[in-house]
Nucleic acid binder design. Structure first.
Length: 259
DNA sequence: ATGGTGGGGATCCCA
């Protein structure tokens, strides 16, 4: 089962390039971020026509996450637990049943800039809630994953120019520590465990020629519970689509699980 | 230090 995460940066602007990628890459599951759409405006038929079941958690203008799955989705839950007052649509989860059941969590972690400030406070609070949900997933001792745009550069090898990110909310020591605290609960980074070392990126800014200069960062991650990590057979990044017409600033990151 | 680009929706916010 091929499972991809992709920050599409707006479903209306990305409908065609997203469909082109789906038709070529043929993921069984696509976890989408930044759909920037209300649920009722999401073009579900585009994906249902391609054999996908569709679950969304959208909001107007910003954020918004979705799950596309060729197999049926069960037990859908919207919103990250831990703050009933949080209005931002950044989390959706569901169970897909292949030979075994797999719990899927799609997330769009807050950017947090400028730091320090209220946006950075929100980011760190959100990561603390993520930590809580992560602990619960591990307690289930079932195959599960949390994938999406983490807005975290975990280490210097995850940026072409780490020195340019030193004071950025994506790379501050406190951000990286919060990410490690989740990882160190017992998750495996599904891409990194197969592809260590520098030069692997999932985001290139639209500005200042970041793509032609390959000035990228790796901020889209797929965290696997031990039971999911045991099923990992392959992982990759579909970097070439960043060079196409009307690209997102992110590209898909994917894992293949034997289920 | 600045401005560079893009999406969405509203004349500005977010990244």
């Amino acid at each position: 089962m091929k499972i991809a995460t992709f920050n599409i940066n707006g479903i209306r602007a990305r409908a065609q390039p997203l469909c082109d990628w789906l038709d070529e890459a043929r993921p069984d599951v696509a976890l989408l971020q930044e759909i920037k759409s209300l649920d009722e405006n999401f073009p579900r038929a585009l994906f249902e026509d391609r054999g996908y079941n569709v679950e969304t958690h959208g909001q107007k203008g910003f954020n918004g996450v979705a799950i596309l799955s060729k197999l049926p989705l069960e037990d859908v839950s919207r919103g990250l637990p831990g703050d009933d007052g949080d209005e931002q649509a950044r989390w959706i989860e569901a169970t897909v049943v292949g030979e075994r059941a797999l719990r899927l969590c799609a997330l769009y972690l807050p950017n947090g800039n400028p730091a320090p400030g209220p946006k950075y406070d929100y980011k760190l609070a959100w990561m603390e809630r993520l930590h809580g949900r992560a602990r619960e997933l591990l307690r289930s001792e079932e195959p599960a994953l949390m994938a999406g745009d983490y807005n975290v550069i975990p280490g210097r090898e995850d940026a072409a120019r780490p020195e340019a990110w030193e004071s950025d909310a994506l790379f501050l020591p406190e951000t990286r520590a919060a990410f490690r605290r989740v990882l160190n609960l017992g998750f495996t980074d599904g891409f990194r465990v197969r592809h260590p070392g520098p030069g692997h990126y999932s985001f290139w800014d639209y500005q200042a020629g970041a793509w032609p200069r390959n000035n990228g960062i790796l901020i889209d991650h797929i965290l696997l519970t031990p039971q999911a990590a045991d099923l990992l057979t392959d992982a990759g990044i579909d970097r070439e689509i960043r060079g196409r017409e009307k690209p997102s600033d992110h590209v898909p990151v994917w894992v293949e699980l034997d289920l």
